[in-house]
Write a protein that binds this DNA or RNA. Structure first.
Lengths: 216, 216
DNA sequence: TCTGCCTAAATTGTAGCCAATATTTTATAC
DNA sequence: GTATAAAATATTGGCTACAATTTAGGCAGA
C-alpha cells in the first residue's frame, strides 16, 4: 500500500515537510500507476499530512506554529479522557502489549534510530486509544499523532526523547492499578510536556530529495 | 462540486442512510465523469459519510448505535471547550451573524422545512467553532456534525427540534456577556440533551431512490 | 543588467477503455 | 416446486491517452 509507505516515511522523518510529491515519481517508486498515487495523495491530504495545490501538485505538509499549538491543545483535551477510559477497560493482556511496545521503543532509542523511536512513541499513544475502545476518539488521535510527527520534525527543541519514556512508564503504573484519575492526570501533564518541548519561534528546515528518502 | 451537492443532500435528509450511490448514476446526475465521482465518494468516505465496500460500491453510511453514542460523547467533550473559546473572542459583528443564523433557523422551522432547519442548526454549531478560531477543533466538529446528521436521521426520537432553539438562545446570552464558563456549561448540557434525544434501540429506516432525492 | 513577455516543457485534471469482481437470471436436477 | 449451479449482466477497479494549467527558460527591449 502506497499510503502506508508514505505514512511510514513521514512518521520516521525520512521525508521532510515541504517536499514535493510528484505523481509520476511516487508512482515510479512504488511501481503503481498515477491513479493509485492520486488516491493515496488525496487520502493523505484528508488527514492533513500532505497539502494538494490545484494544478501545482502535492507537498508534504508544513504545519504552521499556530497549527502545531492547536494540535497539541487538542491532544491535551482528548488524550487524557481516553487514557482514563483505557484505564477502566485495561486487561492483563493489554498491559503486556503496552509493555512490549515500550521495550521496542527503548531498543530503538538505544540503537540510535531516532525516527523509529519517535514512530513507536506515537504508536504507544495510539494503542492506548485502541484499548479505550472508542473509535471516534481513536480516529481523532490517530490523525493528531500523525500531524504531531510533522510538527516535531519542524519544531522539536531538544534532540533527546527521554522524557517520553519516563511519562510512559508512569502511565503504565496507573494502568496497572486501573486508576483512571491518575492515568488522566499523567497523560495531561505528558501532553503539556510535549507541547512545551516545541520551539514555535524558529523552524528546523531540512529539505530532502524524495528519491533518496524512500529507500523502502 | 459534487462533494458539496451530496453533502447537502445528506445534511437535509434528502438521501437516507444505506442508499447506494452508483458511480454512473451520480455522474449522470451531476454531469461529470466517473473519475470525478470516484474522487468525491472517496472524500466522503474519509469523512465517514459514505462507506465504500470493495467491488460492491458506495453507500450512504449507517452509523451504528455505538458510533452514534461515541459521536455525541466526542461532541460533549470538544464543543463545550470550543464554546468557551468562542465566548472569549466574541465580537459584536459575530454576534449579529449568529443571531441572523438563528433567525434563518426559525424561518425554516416555521415553513416546515425540517431538513433545512436541521442543517442550519448544525451550521450554528459550526459557526461557533469558526469564531473560536481553532482550526483543528473546527475540523473535528465539522466532521462530527456531518455524522450527527446521519445519526439523527436514524435515531432521532421526537419530531420537533424546539429544544434546539431554546439552547441556542441561551448560548446567545452567554456570548453577549462574554461569559466563557456559562457558554461552556450551556453547550455541555445542550449536547447531553441532543444525546439523550436519541433512541438507540430501534432505527428509523426510510430508504429512498437516489434520483428522486437529488432534485438540486 | 534588469524587466517583461512569449514560447516550450513538464505536471496535473479529466475522460474513456478494458479487466476483474459481484449480482442476477436462467436452466437443470432432485 | 425448490434448490443448486452456471451463464449472462451490470458495476466497480485500474490504466492509458488526451486536455488544461502552471512553471521555466529564452529573447527582446529599455
Amino acid at each position: 500500500m502506497v499510503v502506508a509507505g508514505l505514512q511510514r516515511a513521514i512518521f520516521e522523518h525520512k521525508i521532510a515537510p515541504g517536499t514535493k510529491l510528484s505523481e509520476d515519481e511516487v508512482g515510479e517508486i512504488f511501481g503503481v500507476s498515477r491513479t493509485i498515487v492520486r488516491s493515496a495523495l488525496q487520502a493523505l491530504a484528508h488527514s492533513q499530512l500532505v497539502s494538494i495545490e490545484k494544478n501545482r501538485g502535492a507537498f508534504i505538509a508544513s504545519p504552521t506554529p499556530k497549527e502545531a499549538h492547536e494540535v497539541f491543545e487538542a491532544r491535551g483535551l482528548i488524550e487524557p479522557r481516553v487514557a482514563a477510559m483505557a484505564a477502566k477497560r485495561m486487561t492483563d493482556q493489554m498491559l503486556e502489549i503496552l509493555a512490549s511496545h515500550i521495550e521496542d521503543e527503548h531498543a530503538a532509542t538505544a540503537s540510535g534510530d531516532k525516527g523509529r523511536a519517535l514512530s513507536l512513541s506515537g504508536g504507544y499513544h495510539l494503542k492506548i486509544a485502541e484499548i479505550a475502545g472508542h473509535e471516534v476518539f481513536t480516529d481523532f488521535i490517530r490523525a493528531l499523532i500523525s500531524r504531531s510527527s510533522l510538527i516535531i520534525a519542524l519544531y522539536w527543541r531538544r534532540a533527546d526523547t527521554t522524557c517520553e519514556s519516563h511519562s510512559h512508564h508512569a502511565l503504565m503504573k496507573a494502568f496497572e492499578h486501573r486508576d483512571p484519575a491518575a492515568a488522566e492526570e499523567i497523560m495531561r501533564s505528558h501532553i503539556v510536556d510535549l507541547h512545551s518541548g516545541l520551539n514555535l519561534s524558529d523552524v528546523n528546515r531540512s529539505p530532502l530529495s524524495l528519491a533518496d528518502a524512500l529507500k523502502l
